[in-house]
Computed example of a mutant assay.
Amino acid sequence: MAEIVGVVERLWRYPVKSTAGERLSEVAVDDRGLAGDRLYAVRDGEGRFGSGKNTRRFRRMDGLLRLGSRLGRRLDGPELLDPLGRTVADPDAFLRAYLQREDVGLAREDAVSHFDQLPVSLLTTATLDWVREAVPTALVDERRFRPNILLRTPPGTRPFVEDDWLGREAALKSGARLRFVRSSERCVMATAAQPGLPHAPEILRVLAKEHDNRLDALAMVSAPGLLRVGDRLRLL
């Protein structure tokens, strides 16, 4: 029998990778993830994408998290917002000046995925509340962890309940289904300053000590549909 484990409280999409996202009331989801999520990235002349870390695919570009992005109902051409929330007229020119790099610009995803790991990230309020209590010196909300879905869980739900869902599937009213696979290993992005949230390195130290630096549930989309705020999530 399906078990209702929570209600979708907030939905987030990040049109430009590593920038602040936009809150949505509903959004379509398919094999790639939420429509428009990380569809664009800041790409340099070597083809590496702006991120909070350096890897073979990603280049650390400090300051991206202070910027915002939004698509609204369009998937072609996101708006880029400066640190004061103002729309940028020429994103490429702005990024070159802001990052002090002449080889960067917005790029739409092609054959190389912009995702770090899997398409959909879900975080429960039970886990988020635990982080707040464990790190009382930091300002904590879900923006630090960049989930697509913040799920309101019933009172008494234990923190990190997401771990119990790995390997299982969940369904929503629209028929959309998510298959939980693993959790995210957290990096300095969770501690970085962004509008309204100062630098908070203590968050990563607590996660490393108490939960192997992991937080959320990452999912594949096993059936397309709509995600809506207020919908119940049923664990199958």
Rank of each mutant, 00 (worst) to 15 (best):
residue 131 V to K: 01
residue 151 L to S: 11
residue 155 P to S: 14
residue 138 A to P: 03
residue 164 D to I: 09
residue 173 K to I: 12
residue 183 S to R: 15
residue 154 P to D: 04
residue 207 L to Y: 06
residue 177 R to I: 13
residue 149 I to Y: 10
residue 200 A to C: 01
residue 192 A to M: 14
residue 197 L to W: 12
residue 196 G to S: 09
residue 141 D to G: 13
residue 192 A to L: 09
residue 192 A to R: 11
residue 211 H to K: 07
residue 132 R to I: 02
residue 205 R to K: 15
residue 180 F to M: 02
residue 135 V to G: 08
residue 180 F to Q: 05
residue 197 L to S: 12
residue 171 A to T: 14
residue 166 L to T: 00
residue 200 A to D: 01
residue 202 E to S: 13
residue 152 R to M: 05
residue 189 M to P: 01
residue 134 A to P: 01
residue 190 A to K: 00
residue 201 P to T: 11
residue 146 R to G: 01
residue 174 S to K: 05
residue 146 R to C: 07
residue 180 F to C: 03
residue 189 M to T: 03
residue 135 V to M: 07
residue 179 R to F: 06
residue 141 D to M: 08
residue 178 L to Q: 08
residue 170 A to K: 12
residue 202 E to N: 05
residue 148 N to C: 04
residue 192 A to D: 08
residue 150 L to Q: 13
residue 129 D to G: 13
residue 191 T to H: 00
residue 205 R to N: 07
residue 151 L to G: 12
residue 160 F to Y: 14
residue 208 A to L: 07
residue 177 R to H: 10
residue 144 R to I: 07
residue 197 L to E: 10
residue 201 P to K: 14
residue 153 T to V: 12
residue 138 A to Q: 04
residue 199 H to C: 03
residue 200 A to L: 04
residue 202 E to W: 05
residue 170 A to N: 10
residue 191 T to W: 02
residue 201 P to V: 13
residue 163 D to P: 03
residue 145 F to P: 07
residue 199 H to F: 14
residue 135 V to K: 07
residue 159 P to A: 03
residue 139 L to K: 09
residue 208 A to N: 12
residue 131 V to S: 02
residue 189 M to I: 13
residue 140 V to K: 06
residue 200 A to S: 15
residue 162 E to M: 09
residue 191 T to N: 03
residue 202 E to P: 02
residue 214 R to M: 06
residue 162 E to T: 05
residue 175 G to W: 11
residue 173 K to E: 15
residue 182 R to Q: 15
residue 148 N to H: 08
residue 189 M to A: 08
residue 129 D to H: 11
residue 186 R to H: 04
residue 180 F to I: 03
residue 216 D to G: 05
residue 161 V to A: 15
residue 147 P to H: 12
residue 194 Q to I: 02
residue 171 A to L: 09
residue 161 V to W: 04
residue 169 E to L: 01
residue 158 R to Y: 11
residue 209 K to C: 02
residue 137 T to A: 15
residue 193 A to E: 15
residue 179 R to L: 10
residue 165 W to I: 08
residue 136 P to N: 15
residue 174 S to D: 10
residue 128 L to V: 03
residue 183 S to Y: 01
residue 175 G to H: 14
residue 126 A to P: 07
residue 213 N to I: 10
residue 140 V to D: 09
residue 180 F to D: 07
residue 162 E to F: 05
residue 210 E to T: 11
residue 176 A to P: 03
residue 212 D to S: 13
residue 174 S to Y: 02
residue 170 A to M: 12
residue 134 A to M: 09
residue 134 A to G: 10
residue 190 A to M: 01
residue 130 W to S: 05
residue 161 V to T: 14
residue 216 D to M: 03
residue 152 R to A: 15
residue 182 R to E: 15
residue 131 V to T: 04
residue 165 W to T: 03
residue 162 E to P: 06
residue 195 P to F: 06
residue 216 D to E: 11
residue 135 V to E: 08
residue 216 D to V: 10
residue 166 L to Q: 08
residue 188 V to W: 03
residue 149 I to W: 06
residue 153 T to R: 00
residue 153 T to C: 03
residue 213 N to Y: 05
residue 165 W to E: 01
residue 147 P to R: 10
residue 169 E to V: 15
residue 141 D to P: 04
residue 178 L to T: 13
residue 179 R to S: 11
residue 129 D to F: 04
residue 152 R to T: 06
residue 150 L to E: 09
residue 130 W to M: 05
residue 137 T to V: 14
residue 145 F to Y: 07
